[in-house]
Design a protein around this nucleic acid. Structure first.
Lengths: 210, 210
DNA sequence: TGGTGTGAACAACTTCACAGCG
DNA sequence: CGCTGTGAAGTTGTTCACACCA
């Protein structure tokens, strides 16, 4: 019985992790798992897992645990990941190329369908992974045409805001921003920033301080 | 007057962001900034910034704000980022190569000094960015020799745990793990996992669910 | 019996509101 | 006067502990 209390942001993040682990367990033929065992693998508290799940319903069997395959399917559905998503890459540098060819994304239903760059020398060429590179001006046309839902920005910091503006004007609703700069967007558009340097800073702090 | 109350994890993460913004402001010749202005740029609450800073001392001037250059320096010091760090890359695939050549890291004092891989065909060659590739067996020797402090794991999931084990045996204390798998480590070793697929999942959830 | 589902206690983090200082 | 620094209030997220059920 799905309740519609507001779901903590932290819960959403963990569900995505549970899903990955369940997928793995399923592949290895594990059929049933308890919250305690799953917690151990995911590195979280067992009550946490049970509580996370109650936001969306009851999925377990008392005295037994959870059916791996079933729970995997249910979480998938809850997260809206039971369908493929088309991605557009904006900014074809080293990082962009690496992301576009990262197998793990397509394994999870995320497919790059086009790449965009301002550099005329790159436009018209094709990435090793088979994705064509278009000029940024083509966003407006290709976003609807190829049904691109999410833009991945891997431009230099100085070009990131323009890239975001162009993507939004073309109809993009979600952006994953790898450029080391905060970009501002109108209401209704969702941006996630992935700041790798921040991760280093954090690690360094914990390693070398006090 | 630095107090030694425990510092929230969330505060550490934000300090790293403030620092990046302050660095930028300094470059643009801004000399003074109020918590309200800085908050606006960072997308957080002004009181949050002031509170974050109180964990480490008093850095502002009432009625005025903060001296950009000074605050930048102080946060840098607090985070232990006032010195360079040597990184070792383990797993020379597309992602690894992209990270090693990412200018933004070296701009912030993080330098890749060696790369390691199990593939004999890669060993002995040099990356475009000038970093030599060694066999994983060389970790034990080169980690102390090159003073490598942090390992960046970009191997396939199946090789990540072995890579971590080897790095730890060689004396590494901090690991940034890009492989899509949870790795387990002994006490005293710090691991940060960067899970890019999770970021997509999160974005997709917010975009396409209720 | 053993493990889920969950209210209630607890802990962590954020925001408010204002005293106090430059 | 304006903006910092900070106790106190408010909010959000986590863990406990146990009733309940397969």
């Amino acid at each position: 019985m799905a309740k519609t209390l507001k779901v903590p942001e932290a819960t959403i993040k963990r569900l995505s992790i549970y899903m990955r682990v369940l997928k793995d367990l399923e592949k290895n033929g594990i059929e049933v798992i308890s919250s305690a065992e799953l917690a151990e693998i995911c590195g979280v508290n067992a009550a946490q897992i049970r509580k996370d799940l109650t936001y969306f319903g009851e999925f377990g069997i008392r005295g037994v645990g959870y059916y791996v395959k079933e729970l995997h399917f249910d979480i998938r559905k809850v997260l809206g990941l039971n369908q493929k998503r088309n991605l557009g890459l904006i900014g074809v540098g080293n990082l962009g190329k690496a992301l576009a060819s990262y197998r793990n994304f397509s394994d999870h239903g995320y497919n790059f369908v086009a790449a965009f760059d301002a550099d005329k020398a790159k436009v018209g060429t094709t990435l090793p992974c088979g994705i064509d590179i278009y000029h940024i001006d083509k966003l407006k046309q290709l976003v609807p045409e190829l049904n691109i839902e999410i833009a991945i920005i891997t431009t230099p910091a100085s070009a990131a805001q323009d890239a975001a503006d162009a993507a939004i004007k073309a109809g993009i609703k979600g952006i994953l921003n790898f450029a080391p700069v905060q970009i501002s967007v109108p209401d209704g558009i969702r941006v996630k920033k992935v700041d790798l340097t921040t991760e280093f800073d954090n690690l360094a702090y914990h390693l070398f301080t006090s």
